[in-house]
Design a protein around this nucleic acid. Structure first.
Lengths: 338, 338
DNA sequence: CTGAAAGCGCTTACAG
DNA sequence: CTGAAAGCGCTTACAG
């Protein structure tokens, strides 16, 4: 690879001068600047980012650890994160935890070793000593979507409580009384919050959420399938739920797989709703009623917060809200989003 | 950040020794090794990957530039690439071109500046002087899925010709005679190949593919919507296609949006099929007939080829084949995959 | 078995 | 306005 030395000798100047023109330092005479630029062009020289970062102690790079790349919600989040970061002059390196705390820590470690300027994470599990340590060591960090208790960093998330209440009211209105949920890992905040909101809302209608109606999932499709099978296998039909709320879109996919495999129909045999709205939900049979998050907004706000921290400014936590999008999977004809 | 010097002084050895134990160099006495390791643990020391890479001239990192993160095909590809790379001791940095050649080049440049050991790309556009130059300069590189003519690097892709022929035969058998395609950019190989295969197959049935039945798309959803609107707006109903083949899943999504917006029904009013199979196609209304690629296999083979190049071994191009998965979107009841 | 030293490719305070 | 030199955090050939 051609280095700054090659450019310097070709332009007949010192490497210091080359460095200055590359960094737009004002104190360089126009004609020497021109000579340097010409040499750069002729040699096709590109500065070595590693060397530069080593020297300046900044990489202008953000790390993003997402829970699962195969989940359209996170993929859209990643997209908005990258867009906003690029607009602000940063690049981002993505790590996919695949919902595994170990893999998540692997990525956090790798990212830290690369000396990224800041870390954005949507934690896959519960506590992570590694991340706690990093936060305490002063690594600029912010949580998106999910967060870890006891780690004191800003959180950018959506509060789905209201939307979940709306969903439960919607189900109740349509006559459903035996509501069930397929939840994410209790160790994740979104996992526990969504069940709690669901349970609270159910109570408001004088109903209960029995333990058998809480299917333990892990936010991935297979677990949605298994939990649904469990519900449908309950011996006494009167115990079986008449509606399922999947706490994310992938588990809803799994639920649909299982329901279809048994020749059952949504919503006639069982109602289905999901947290996270995705474009495909419009075209499924039937269209799925879902809770939509302002995903792009979330990603952009998270990046801004992180860059604030990186550049030494304070950054507040931010909470946006979700909304229920009624379609046909709980019964009744298609309504308009409220 | 704590550096190798801190570890050295704490352990009472030189930095050279610390470096040796970190790199598992055999010639270190067990007890000094222990002392060093203890110091590393006490300080929570993590080597600076930038410094190491600068010195060793290798990053053990691969760059992957994909055409569109929002496309489930690429997201699955990225997932398998990352998995295989990690298994082989490499990490990967992903860049999302969003189907824009400029953005693609931006990422290639950034990746090159970071001195990644090798580059995996699924080119968004036609020729890229930047990539041609990099290839000529000896940067280990391989193309996945799509490739660029005239750039001499291994290509790992799937050949969809046979599957497209099967699809056309399937459509013909069901009585469709006015077949149309929504294609990707002609500058991309998958864009041009899929139309060609489609056209050739149509000819075999004594039919033709008139220019008005070729909708120009860009592999993203909106373009699928527009192309479909165009087809449906043709003044003379006898000119309107009776079936649409979308060259990727996102354009199929757009087509469904448009068809549904007009109150039309698949397959009764118009048949629909797509290149790339995704889990949602099982649950759409109706389930979509699609051409499935062995995506994971593609990603893994691409990584192996790239690492072969990186480590100085020759790497062959590899071509896998696709298969038609018949569902109900072209008419007729659900068949089994052939 | 271990250390001193050179050097990877940059940036930047210090002189001039 | 420009250059010589130090130094970022590592690795590794060379001595001992």
């Amino acid at each position: 690879m051609t280095s700054i030395k090659d450019v310097a000798s070709r332009a007949g100047v010192s490497v210091a001068t080359v460095s200055r023109v590359l960094n737009d330092h004002p104190s360089v005479r126009q004609d020497t600047r021109d000579r340097v630029l010409a040499a750069v062009a002729e040699l096709g020289y590109r500065p070595n980012a590693l060397a530069r970062s080593l020297r300046t102690d900044q990489t202008r790079t953000l790390g993003l650890v997402i829970s699962d790349v195969l989940n359209p919600f996170f993929t859209e989040l990643a997209r908005s994160v990258e867009d906003e970061a690029r607009a602000l002059g940063y690049s981002v390196i993505i790590g996919n935890a695949d919902e595994q705390p170990d893999l998540q820590d692997h990525h956090v470690r790798t990212l830290l070793d690369r000396r990224i300027d800041g870390l954005l994470v949507s934690p896959a599990g519960g506590g992570s000593p590694l991340m706690l340590e990093a936060a305490q060591a002063g690594v600029p960090m912010v949580f998106v979507d999910r967060w870890i208790q006891g780690v004191d960093v800003p959180v950018v998330r959506t509060d789905g409580r209201e939307a979940v209440r709306d969903l439960v009211a919607h189900l109740y209105r349509l006559g459903h009384r035996r509501l069930a949920i397929i939840t994410g890992p209790a160790a994740t905040t979104t996992g526990s919050e969504r069940v709690e909101a669901f349970r609270d809302a159910i109570r408001e209608h004088g109903l209960t959420l029995p333990p058998e109606h809480i299917g333990q999932g892990d936010f991935q499709a297979d677990s949605g399938r298994r939990a649904t099978a469990h519900f449908l296998d309950m011996p006494d039909p009167r115990d079986r739920p008449d509606s399922i709320f999947a706490a994310d879109n992938l588990m809803a996919l799994g639920a649909m797989d299982e329901i279809r495999a048994r020749g059952l129909k949504v919503p006639d045999d069982i109602a289905l709703a999901a947290f996270d709205d995705i474009p495909w939900f419009v075209h499924t049979d039937p269209p799925i009623t879902a809770i939509a998050q302002p995903t792009g907004e979330l990603g952009r706000a998270a990046v801004r917060a992180l860059i604030d921290r990186v550049e030494g400014r304070p950054a507040p936590s931010v909470t946006v809200s979700a909304r229920l999008v009624v379609r046909r999977s709980c019964g009744e004809s298609e309504g308009k989003p409220r």
